[in-house]
C-alpha cells in the first residue's frame, strides 16, 4: 500500500486527522488523513480554502469483509466565522479481506484460499462541517458521503460513509 509512504510526505506543515469511520451507519472503521491547505480567498469572516491530501480507511463489515483503502484527495472548505463547510473527494484503491474461511473447488477437491478478497478502485466523496474545539488548535469534523467499490460482481457498488473525528495541526506552519 502507498499510504505509509504518503503519510510522512503529507505531514510536513499540514494537518493530521483521525476519526471514527462508519459505513452504512454502523459498520465500524477508523480513518487517518492528512491535508495541506491554502487560503485562496478571504472576505471579512468568510474564507475559501482548497486542500490536497490523502486518506486511509480500515472498515469492517461483519460476516462480509474487512476493507483497507487509500486515496489521494482534493477538497475545498468555505469558512463562515468559526464553522466551515467542507467538500472532499478522493481517488483511490484498496483491498478487501473476506470475513470467513474461503474455499475454491479444484480437481483435487476443495482447497482453502488464504487472505481471500479482491483489489478494486475505491473513490469517494463526502461533505460535512468542521469547527474549532474549545482549546483552539484542534478542530472537529463530521462528514458523510459515498465510497464506491469497483468492480464488484459485474458492476460496482456504493457504500454510505460517515466520519467524525479531530484534526490536529502538525509540522511547521
Amino acid at each position: 500500500m502507498l499510504w505509509p509512504l504518503l503519510t510522512p510526505l503529507c505531514l510536513a506543515g499540514t494537518e493530521l486527522a483521525a476519526g471514527w469511520s462508519a459505513e452504512s451507519g454502523l459498520h465500524p472503521g477508523v480513518g487517518v488523513s492528512t491535508a495541506r491547505r491554502a487560503v485562496v480567498a478571504e472576505r471579512g469572516a468568510a474564507s475559501l480554502t482548497v486542500l490536497a491530501g490523502h486518506t486511509t480507511r480500515l472498515t469492517h463489515h461483519r460476516q462480509r469483509h474487512t476493507r483497507l483503502s487509500a486515496s489521494l484527495d482534493l477538497g475545498a472548505s468555505v469558512a463562515l466565522g468559526a464553522l466551515a463547510l467542507d467538500l472532499r473527494a478522493g481517488a483511490g484503491a484498496g483491498r478487501t479481506f473476506l470475513a470467513g474461511q474461503t474455499y475454491v473447488a479444484t480437481d483435487s477437491g476443495l482447497e482453502p484460499v488464504p487472505l481471500a478478497g479482491q483489489w478494486g478502485w475505491m473513490p469517494w466523496a463526502a461533505a460535512g462541517f468542521s469547527g474549532p474545539t474549545r482549546g483552539g488548535r484542534v478542530s472537529w469534523f463530521a462528514q458523510a458521503g459515498l465510497l464506491a467499490q469497483l468492480p464488484l460482481h459485474d458492476h460496482w457498488a456504493p457504500f454510505l460513509i460517515a466520519d467524525v473525528g479531530l484534526r490536529i495541526p502538525v509540522g511547521a506552519r
Binding site: S24, R62, R64, P158, L160
Partner: peptide, 22 residues
C-alpha cells in the same frame, strides 16, 4: 433490517436490484 444487515441496506439494495434486473 438496517441494523442487522451485514451488507448495509443501501448497498445491498443497489447490488440486489442490479442482479434482479439481469
Amino acid at each position: 433490517y438496517y441494523l442487522s444487515s451485514s451488507v448495509g441496506w443501501p448497498t445491498e439494495r443497489w447490488v440486489g436490484n442490479h442482479t434482479a434486473d439481469l
